[in-house]
Amino acid sequence: MILVVFRSRFSDDVDGSYDTTERHLAQKVRELAGDDLVHLKNYRSEDGERLALVWWRSAESLEKWRNDTEHQDAQRRGKERWYSFYELSVAEVTRTSSSEDEAAYPSE
């Protein structure tokens, strides 16, 4: 399993186009990845930092998403306009333990 961790902070130039784009791409990634997208969670801290956590079953699906032209366009707009700070980390999950159904978190 692959975990993508995306931290960000909005710039003063962020506007409604961010929310529209985020909603559209969240739906698109679910359609594109299907069952390979395990979880997609977004959080915001009191100081305004944002955190997105995305669990993927395969590197191949993540690579497809990485190369999606709409996603790449949103990344460009994020760098140029929406974010004053961002950090992206991609990690391979070697083990997961959960109180939830084992099928939801298959071990690798």
Rank of each mutant, 00 (worst) to 15 (best):
M1I: 13
I2R: 07
I2C: 02
I2F: 11
L3Y: 07
L3R: 12
L3T: 08
V4R: 07
V4I: 06
V5I: 15
F6K: 03
F6I: 07
F6V: 08
F6P: 04
F6E: 09
R7T: 09
S8C: 08
R9G: 06
F10H: 13
F10T: 01
S11T: 05
D12E: 15
D13S: 13
V14W: 02
V14Y: 03
D15L: 05
D15H: 01
G16F: 03
G16P: 01
S17Y: 02
S17M: 04
Y18T: 04
Y18P: 02
D19A: 08
D19L: 00
D19Q: 08
D19V: 01
T20K: 07
T20S: 02
T20P: 00
T21P: 02
E22K: 05
E22N: 11
E22R: 01
R23V: 09
H24T: 01
L25K: 00
A26D: 11
A26V: 04
Q27A: 11
K28D: 09
K28H: 11
K28M: 12
V29K: 02
V29L: 10
V29N: 03
V29A: 12
R30D: 00
E31M: 03
E31R: 10
L32N: 03
L32I: 15
A33L: 15
A33E: 04
A33M: 14
G34S: 12
G34V: 06
G34P: 07
D35E: 15
D35L: 12
D35A: 14
L37C: 09
L37Y: 11
L40T: 00
L40Y: 11
K41H: 06
K41S: 14
R44Q: 14
R44H: 13
S45E: 13
E46Y: 09
E49N: 11
R50A: 01
R50V: 00
L51A: 10
L51W: 12
L53C: 09
W55R: 15
W56E: 09
A59N: 10
E60V: 07
L62K: 05
L62T: 00
E63H: 12
K64V: 14
K64T: 10
R66N: 11
R66T: 08
N67H: 13
N67S: 04
D68A: 06
D68I: 08
T69M: 13
E70L: 09
D73T: 13
A74E: 04
Q75T: 02
R76C: 09
G78K: 02
G78N: 05
E80N: 07
R81D: 00
R81H: 10
W82T: 01
Y83A: 04
S84E: 07
S84L: 01
F85A: 11
E87K: 12
E87W: 02
L88R: 14
L88E: 10
L88T: 08
S89Y: 08
S89L: 13
V90H: 06
V90T: 15
V90Y: 05
E92V: 06
E92I: 01
E92M: 08
V93N: 06
T94M: 14
T94L: 15
T94G: 09
R95W: 06
R95S: 13
T96K: 14
S97L: 15
S99K: 09
S99P: 02
S99Q: 03
E100P: 00
E100T: 07
D101V: 03
A104P: 01
Y105S: 10
Y105C: 05
Y105T: 11
P106F: 08
P106K: 12
S107W: 06
E108L: 15
E108T: 15
E108R: 15
E108P: 15
